[in-house]
Structures are given as structure tokens and as C-alpha cells.
Nucleic acid binder design. Sequence first.
DNA 1: CAAAATATATCAGAAACTTAATTAAGCAAC
DNA 2: GTTGCTTAATTAAGTTTCTGATATATTTTG
Lengths: 161, 161
Amino acid sequence: MPDFPELSVAELTHVLEDFTRMHIRLPAERRLSFTTLSVLHTLAGGGPKRLTDLAAGEQVTQSAITQMVTKLEREGLVERRPDPSDGRAVLVRVTAAGAAIVDGRRSERMARLADLAARLGPGERAAIAAALPALARMVELHEGAVPADPPSTAGGNDDEP
Amino acid sequence: MPDFPELSVAELTHVLEDFTRMHIRLPAERRLSFTTLSVLHTLAGGGPKRLTDLAAGEQVTQSAITQMVTKLEREGLVERRPDPSDGRAVLVRVTAAGAAIVDGRRSERMARLADLAARLGPGERAAIAAALPALARMVELHEGAVPADPPSTAGGNDDEP
DNA sequence: CAAAATATATCAGAAACTTAATTAAGCAAC
DNA sequence: GTTGCTTAATTAAGTTTCTGATATATTTTG
């Protein structure tokens, strides 16, 4: 089983799973399905995307994405635009209203985490802060991006989603 | 905006959101829906639970849970048992086959995380390891302060593995 | 330029979820 | 002990969301 002298991967996995469950079950304010929220989040965070890319990312069929986007467009949460570089393709982007929903959910998560962090000691908070750059780099590695520099400063993208 | 001298809650939220998305969209080995997998995970991690508790946790209706459990029972992944402390209630528990599915998914997550961790420096891995206890404590704090409606019975099982 | 591949759309049917109504068991007070 | 209120689960019917198969338009390839 995979482990390192410094780090128990099993423990890391377990903690992350717990946070995952904690993050998923929050408000279902508007009547939006889980997949729908995930698409909005993807678009808000990564900019306009093609339907096929969304389908691959969400692991549903392209047909499901077409129908979902049609519905979201009717509700004013996303827009369809022709892709200038490919006449067959369509680019989907979030509207301000769609982004507001994503931001609202993030605010609730932040408020929750802040509440929990407030009940930790300063040393515990510092330990978490010290791990953030490394955790962020794991995410980057997963997405295929190449950050080049190891830790460096954690600052940078604070409006990314 | 919630923040601490030692820790940026915004950054923590962002990193955890990314891991959440990374964890959710994994294998779809057997034809099980996301909610179904989440229920299996809950049962495997927290022991037998009532249908109402499952419904509250997954944020779906009680009716949806009844139907899902019926289907899972037919497939041999969970079992229904009468609750000895309450004649109205039913306790649902995972079978070995159900637990195997959860374990399989966890193994895949661990393998993924191990692969990513292997590409970090030792210092980065150590930083993550140092933060695990504090992160685990946040999860515990969250689970301690959950429900608005207190449980009816004194003998309920509410412990964490 | 024809043939193959790609990107989206459409439609019928299956799956998952919701609302509403039903049955059964506990709880409280008289 | 029985009357009435509440809670737990099921059932039934209807709605939303997804899949599978097929169609159409636009690259890309040979």
C-alpha cells in the first residue's frame, strides 16, 4: 500500500473524503441538481468550455449536457456562443447570475470552514496554512499543469474558483 | 470576509473544492449513481443507520432512500434489519459486497493521491502530514455541531470510525 | 472532392427523484 | 386503556434527468 516516510496517504485520503462529504451536502437553494451545480462551478472556474469538454469532465453523456445547457440557458444562468475556431462547436459560458450562484455556495463553504477554523488553536491553523501550497500543487499536478517551481509563495489566485 | 492571521480560509476553501471535484468524478465501475455511492460510503464508514438519517444526510427525500435501499438490497449490497430500540424504524447496513465497492473506490483514490504525492518534495509531504491532525479535528468539530433537530432515542449510534 | 471523424442536437425510453397518501408503531395525557 | 398527535417507513403517481440511438452540420484526411 502506498505510503511515504513523511506522509500517510491513507490518512490523507480519509480526511479528504470526509471534507468531500461535508462540502457536497450543503444548501440546495435553488432547485439545481448536483451535476448542474458542478457544471456551473467548472464554467465559473475555468472559463468557457465546449459541450464535449463538459461532458467528459462530468462523466455524463454529451446528450445530457446539451439538455442541461438548454435548460440553464432558458433560466439565464449560462450562454451559448459559436466557437470562432470551429464552426461545429459551441462555447458555453456562465452569466453573472450563474456566477452568483457559484459564489453564494462558496461563501457558505467559507463561512463554515471559518467557523471550524476559529475553534482550532493558532498552531493548528498555522499547520494547515503551511500545507496549503503543497496541496494546491497536488491539484495542479493532477490537472496536468506544470507549475515548475516547488513551493514558492502561496499567493496568487484568490479569485479563482 | 473570514480569515485569520495564520490562515487564509479562502485558499483553504479553494483547495478543498478542487479535491472534492477530483474525488467525485472517479470510476463509475458498476452502474451506481452518485447518491448511491455516497450512501454506501456513509454506511461503510459510520455503521448501520436508519432510513431517515440517511435521507437527512444525503439531502434527498425519505422516499428516495426507501427506493434506493430496496434496489441495493436486491443487488445484495445492503441489508435491512429491524431496529431493536424502535419498532417503527429499520436499520440499514452494508454487506461485505457493498463494503468491497467502497473499499475499491478508496483504493483508487489512494493510488491517485500516492502518485501525486510522489511527485512532491519531502518537505511538501511533511507539511501535509503536519496538517492532517488539525484537518481531522475540523471534521470532528463539524460532525459534533450538526443537527437542528435532536435525535429522539438515547441509544442511537452516532460515532465516527 | 469524397470519406471519415468530430461536435452538437433531437427523441424515445429508462432511471432517479419528488409529492402525496397510507400503514404502522411510539408517545402523552387523560 | 383509549384517544389523539407524532414519527418511520412504504406505496403510488407524476416529474426531472439521464442514456442510447439517430440525425445534421462542419472539419479533417486521403
